[in-house]
Structure formats: C-alpha cells, structure tokens
Simulated assay, not measured.
Amino acid sequence: MTRGNKAISKAAAVAALGALLLASTACEESGADGSAGSKASGRPGTTSSPKAGQTASATARDGSGNTGGDSGNGVGTAVVACAADGVAFSATSQDEEGKSVRHLLLTVTNTGNKRCHLYQYPYLKFAGARSPIAVIKDSEDAPVTLAPGEKAYAALLATGGRMDTYDTDTLPLSLQGPDPGSKASEPLNIDLPGQVPFDDGARVTYWTTASGLALRFIMTS
C-alpha cells in the first residue's frame, strides 16, 4: 500500500470513529432528557395533588363538626322573646331598713331550658293609670339574651317627689317585644317588699345584665 493510500485510510478511520462518538453522545443526552422529564412530570402528581380519600375526610370533618357543634350549643337556631312562663321575677328594696322604699331592683331569671331575648324595659302600668311608668332613656342598652339560669336587672325609682302617691304591695309587669310598647306577655303581679308609694315621677331603666349599672341611674335621685 502506498503512503497516499495509507493516509486516506487513516483519515477515513478517524472520520468513522468521530461519527460513532457523536452518535453515542446524542443517545446519552436524549436518554438523560427523557429521564429528567419523566421525574419532573411525576413530582407534581405526588406532592401537590392530595389523595381523594384525605380530601373527602377533611371536608366532611369540617362541615359536620361545625354544624354539630353549633346545633348542640343552640347557635344558628332562632332565639325568641322571653315568655312569662319561662322566667321568674323579684323586686328588692335598695333603701336602708326603716326608710320608705323608693329605690327598687327588679330581677328576672330565665327558668326555661332555652335562650331567650329580653327586649326594651319592664312595661309597668297600674290599673287606671293614664300611661305606663316612664323609662330612663339614657339607660338604653342592646337587647339582653339570657341563657337558662342567667339573670337580668332593671332599676325602678318609685317616687320622684310628687304630691299624689299610690301605695301598693304588687307591681304589674309585662315583658316587651322588639318594638317599644309591644307586649310579649300579659301583666304579672310582682310582689313588692311591703307597701311602696308610687307617684308620677316614677322611672324605670332598660334591662341590663349588670345590676350596679342599672342602679346607678336611680340612686342619686
């Protein structure tokens, strides 16, 4: 073989080897890309998509848990106005023993087994009176909601220093509805601590859950 032929044969062998190396590299890169792509597409499916069973369980727990709890606590059910047959009343003197009774604390207790709203103030109107005892408007508060066993209070000033008085040992009290003057019960005769004189200056506060706050409106009178 001549020197020229040897050179040609050597060149051809180098070219063939180069082509073989290129082909091998291309195959490896293609395989790597395919593997990476497979892994990348697999990750979101396992980490961001929760299992169907877990999702259904969480939803059911949140929904049924809240609903059951609210129902058990009475939340979400309509709360009606307190009825006369579901409460008890009392009237106590706030004056020193031996003095004429002018300052009274009215107490109402929820004796039922459901919550109820206590609206406005005690509606107090004696038989034959032209109008009910006036309310102290500055004592207005939000309607009181009483759970079973809870109490609310209203303070009553029996006399305002007027001349004509009416002595009585019972107090006709009616519960009110959401609208002022609307009665939620017929008058109940509440026993007073002895004979108490009333006149046209009598005043009563709104219902409140704080007895001290109610009395503050009448004790300076």
Rank of each mutant, 00 (worst) to 15 (best):
A210C: 03
A142G: 09
I8T: 10
L105Q: 02
P187T: 03
G31S: 13
Y119R: 00
N113R: 09
D191K: 15
N113P: 01
C116E: 04
V144P: 00
T77Q: 15
L106W: 06
T55E: 08
V79K: 04
A91Q: 11
T208I: 01
L17I: 08
E140I: 14
A19T: 12
D191C: 05
S9V: 09
P180E: 06
P50D: 02
R162H: 11
M163P: 02
D169I: 05
V204G: 00
L20T: 14
R203G: 03
H117Y: 07
A214H: 10
P143L: 00
E140Q: 15
S30P: 00
Y123M: 05
V75Y: 11
R102A: 00
L22Q: 11
M1H: 10
A36Y: 14
T111K: 14
L188A: 11
V14T: 13
D179E: 13
I133Y: 00
A184M: 10
L104T: 01
G63H: 12
D62A: 13
A210N: 14
T159I: 14
S9F: 01
N189S: 14
S30T: 08
V87G: 00
E140A: 15
V135D: 03
H103D: 09
L192N: 02
K99E: 01
G128C: 05
G161C: 03
T47G: 07
D95G: 00
R3G: 12
A147Y: 14
L104H: 00
G177W: 02
P122C: 05
L105E: 00
K6N: 11
E96V: 06
D200F: 10
T77V: 15
I218T: 04
L104P: 00
P178C: 07
D138C: 03
P178E: 12
